[in-house]
Design a protein around this nucleic acid. Sequence first.
DNA 1: CGACTGCATCACAAGATAGTAATGCAGTTG
DNA 2: CAACTGCATTACTATCTTGTGATGCAGTCG
Lengths: 110, 110
Amino acid sequence: MSFARMTPELFALVAERFKAFSEPNRLQILHVLRLSEHTVSELVEETGIGQANLSKHLQQLMSCGLVARRKEGLYTHYSLADRDVLKVCDLMCGRLERETKERKKAFATK
Amino acid sequence: MSFARMTPELFALVAERFKAFSEPNRLQILHVLRLSEHTVSELVEETGIGQANLSKHLQQLMSCGLVARRKEGLYTHYSLADRDVLKVCDLMCGRLERETKERKKAFATK
DNA sequence: CGACTGCATCACAAGATAGTAATGCAGTTG
DNA sequence: CAACTGCATTACTATCTTGTGATGCAGTCG
């Protein structure tokens, strides 16, 4: 890790960030937001997640600083907080892709 | 994400990877392994985590491909699976560092 | 102001996860 | 082979997380 000294508190904070990414519905939300800003009702449409549930996930993503909120009259628009959010996702997906590829190869040569 | 099309199964797989990172004890384990390969009993020493608990965490890290195992007689040596594991951690720590710095700044100017 | 809309929050049930003591088991040593 | 060691596994409990229906609330519109 890039901190000089890792304390239990830091481990907990970092873990919390990772936890925000560790749920399929939240990843799907981030994936939809990747394209553009969306309102909550648009996200309900796009993802099929229930409104209350979605709202809670968005709160969680907010509190970890992964998404940004913009209120406009009756609507709340959500968007990705920054490009690093995608970088993290892509890095993890890259790992997974490589992994599945290697598994396929291992299968083939068996 | 870098996959052509994200399916529910893919979201679940990626989420599982993130979940492996989303626990303070597991992050601490990865942090210790960052330096070098360790046996389980060494990890118990270094981290203060109970043996049974540690063993379970190691299984979980294994099944997600984050660490590698090498058995040698009575001992089992664990090490990081690859450099990307660290890249993911560092990226997340970087985010956190920036975040705390900005929060500090916001505090100062208040 | 009264009905409506979009969203947040609450309360609760169901399922997942982490910690721990006890046990199992393979490999080592006397 | 009998005792021991390092680790994995099991069984169980406590805690956390997620999904959902109901409710609350601020902003909008007739």
